[in-house]
Design a protein around this nucleic acid. Structure first.
Lengths: 128, 128
DNA sequence: CGTCTTCTCAGACGTTACGTCTGAGAATCT
DNA sequence: AGATTCTCAGACGTAACGTCTGAGAAGACG
């Protein structure tokens, strides 16, 4: 059994979150946000996490003047999609329907959520 | 950042899968299924994986005669639910709706799946 | 100019998870 | 009795992960 590394780890997610709030951010800005009043080592930690995120293709950077500006290539929705596909693949033979039926029947949706959902389904049905 | 162990790891899932197919199984039966023609060490591996799964509360065993019979306490659907909740919590502030809208709009559902889904939603709506 | 700060880049370190395996002892079979 | 098969407890190596250190380049500013 080979061990599969996680798509995004806990600490990496923290940085990603910061990047989602600050769409164009320097390492310092992210470090300040993730580790308020953190020192040089925390800065370096964020730096390393960004490097690993970049290796995975989840963030990109361009160098602007002297410093690097990072942007997220992986949005929150993308990560949601990724996670959903992972569970569908590993647990439902790749099909999304089990997830759907679980969510619809199991999760207790508010009346509002239910109405929105119905509207969404209806709009989808009509479109073809 | 504390590192959170995975709910079910890759190798553990393999054993769980076997347990889902063989609802009451001895270690040997599981080992034979997970590692066809595996020897003593593979047997011990399955044993250890079961032990860890039991620590997490995902399987239980009773001793039947000389040997232990294992059963899954965590079903496939439970694990699906767990995974869904995890992603909802870590990415959607605990709400399921983003998952739903993503699945409904993003995943390309077949006409049949769509019809089933609509029926499901409708039945839910009428019930209150 | 020289020093001080702030950045980047490269790599190391310690802990834990995870998959695997070994060994000892008890029970059962033949 | 001896071989087999089980259980239980623990060890081992590798990789992941979070963190940190050090060296060097580039501005800032007296």
């Amino acid at each position: 059994m080979a061990r599969t590394p996680r798509d995004v780890t806990d600490a990496e997610l923290e940085v990603l979150r910061a990047l989602w709030d600050l769409p164009e951010a320097t390492i310092r800005a992210l470090a300040d946000r993730v580790y308020p009043n953190g020192g040089a080592s925390e800065y370096a930690t964020v730096q390393k996490l960004l490097e690993r995120l970049e290796d995975k293709g989840h963030v990109a950077h361009r160098s602007e003047g002297r410093q690097n500006v990072y942007t997220a290539r992986l949005g929150r929705e993308d990560l949601v999609a990724l996670r959903l596909r992972e569970t569908a693949d590993s647990l439902c033979g790749g099909s999304f329907t089990p997830l759907l039926t679980h969510l619809v029947s199991g999760a207790r949706l508010s009346a509002r959520e239910l109405r929105d959902l119905r509207r969404l389904v209806d709009s989808l049905g009509e479109r073809r």
